[in-house]
Amino acid sequence: MSRVLFALLLATFGSPGYAAGLPTYELVIRDGHFTPPLLEVPAGQRFKIVLHNQGQGPAEFESTPLRVEKVMSPGVTSFVVIHPLRPGHYPFFDEFHLELPEGGIVAK
């Protein structure tokens, strides 16, 4: 592989800053409750959600329509990058607390 191609691939996919320039939204998960419960994002644009598990037990950010899930221990902060969305509503939930209301993302 040429050095130029390798550098291009590294800059695009392998760099630690890969998600650094994305619009970022914060989401706190505390014992199955989401704050805020609804995120409004622009349609057609990738974005990052920084997840903070501030609950007493594990949390799982999961969304079937977005094909994403992230399991986190108490006190852990992580993130997910979401592909560009069409306008609409995309629910998410904490699989450890299915009895509680879902959260959601609205792409406009």
Score class of each variant (00 low, 15 high):
1 M>E: 01
2 S>M: 10
5 L>M: 08
7 A>N: 10
8 L>P: 03
10 L>P: 02
10 L>Y: 05
11 A>N: 07
12 T>P: 00
12 T>S: 02
12 T>G: 01
13 F>V: 07
15 S>Q: 05
15 S>C: 06
16 P>L: 12
16 P>D: 10
17 G>V: 11
18 Y>D: 06
18 Y>S: 05
19 A>W: 02
20 A>Q: 08
22 L>P: 00
23 P>R: 10
27 L>N: 00
28 V>I: 15
34 F>P: 02
35 T>W: 15
35 T>C: 14
35 T>D: 11
36 P>I: 08
36 P>M: 11
38 L>K: 14
38 L>A: 14
42 P>F: 09
44 G>T: 07
44 G>M: 03
46 R>I: 08
47 F>G: 07
47 F>N: 02
48 K>F: 15
48 K>N: 11
49 I>Q: 00
49 I>F: 00
50 V>D: 01
50 V>W: 00
52 H>N: 06
52 H>E: 02
56 Q>F: 04
57 G>N: 12
57 G>I: 13
58 P>N: 06
60 E>Q: 05
60 E>C: 04
61 F>Q: 07
61 F>V: 14
62 E>A: 13
63 S>Q: 07
64 T>L: 14
64 T>D: 10
65 P>S: 08
67 R>S: 09
68 V>I: 15
70 K>R: 15
71 V>P: 00
71 V>F: 01
71 V>Q: 01
71 V>I: 03
72 M>S: 15
73 S>H: 11
73 S>G: 10
73 S>M: 10
74 P>M: 13
74 P>D: 12
74 P>K: 10
75 G>M: 11
76 V>Q: 05
77 T>C: 13
79 F>K: 04
79 F>R: 07
79 F>G: 03
80 V>Q: 04
82 I>V: 14
83 H>K: 08
83 H>C: 05
86 R>F: 03
86 R>S: 08
87 P>Y: 04
89 H>L: 14
90 Y>I: 05
92 F>W: 02
93 F>R: 08
94 D>G: 09
94 D>P: 05
97 H>A: 00
99 E>T: 11
100 L>W: 01
100 L>S: 03
103 G>C: 07
107 A>G: 07
